[in-house]
Amino acid sequence: MKVFVVGKGGVGKSTVCVALALILQSKDTMLVSLDPAHNISDIVKNHEVMLNFEIVEPDFEKELSIYLKKLTDEMKRESFRYLTVFNLENLLDVLRYSPGTEEHMLLENIKRYIDRRHVVFDTPPTGLFLKVLGLLDSSILWMEKLMELRQDILERKGIKEDPILTIIEKRLKEYVKLKNTLQNEAIFIGVTTEDRLSLKETERIFGFLRKKGYSVPLLVVNRAKEKKVYLEGIKHVFIPEYHDRNPFEISRKIHSLLKLEIQE
């Protein structure tokens, strides 16, 4: 099962993620934190039990540096004459603050771990996460058009093999596969509290996800004082205030509903 946990910051997304990982735990279960402010380890640290799942908290800065180092080496290997003109070391600073970089790194991490049998993603703040999903769609569209243009050029010049086209094709294939997996195999679980802002934000995320064709079957209402249905057509789980920080109690609550979801 591939699960994304979405919701406003501070509503208890990470705790719910740990709860879900506890339900799904096996040798092939992974809990991936996509939130740059990783706090999964802190939650787990408070509960001294053996966990049978892997926790991944990617360091995006480090990943970016490794990526650029690999790129620089590859360019040297290809005896790239323009290397001296484009100072790749300085490019790191440009890239770090360039629009789209953070979204790209997040998308790459989703792509990297999505094929695990059970994976739970703790998503970053709503605005950023919606941009990541938007980036997936726009990248696919952009690469399709770019590929058409490249194929036209190569046909005109009578070139049969081209490394640039191969890279674009490979990336496009990966992104289309990721989109299909997200639409057909993944589920998005919302977490909210009863306050108006959290509810509004959840409503907005669910609207966006449904529009994009993603499955949103479950809403976890954290610190619930009353059992009220906030979103029609979605199963609700109510976590009372005295359990809101305990992933074990939450997992007990969600367990039956989630099992139902797996069977469906």
Partner: peptide, 15 residues
């Protein structure tokens, strides 16, 4: 234009 990772991936072959 924003730097895209596709442009970086293809850069070694883009002389």
């Amino acid at each position: 234009l924003p730097v895209t990772f596709l442009s970086l991936d293809t850069l070694p072959y883009a002389e």
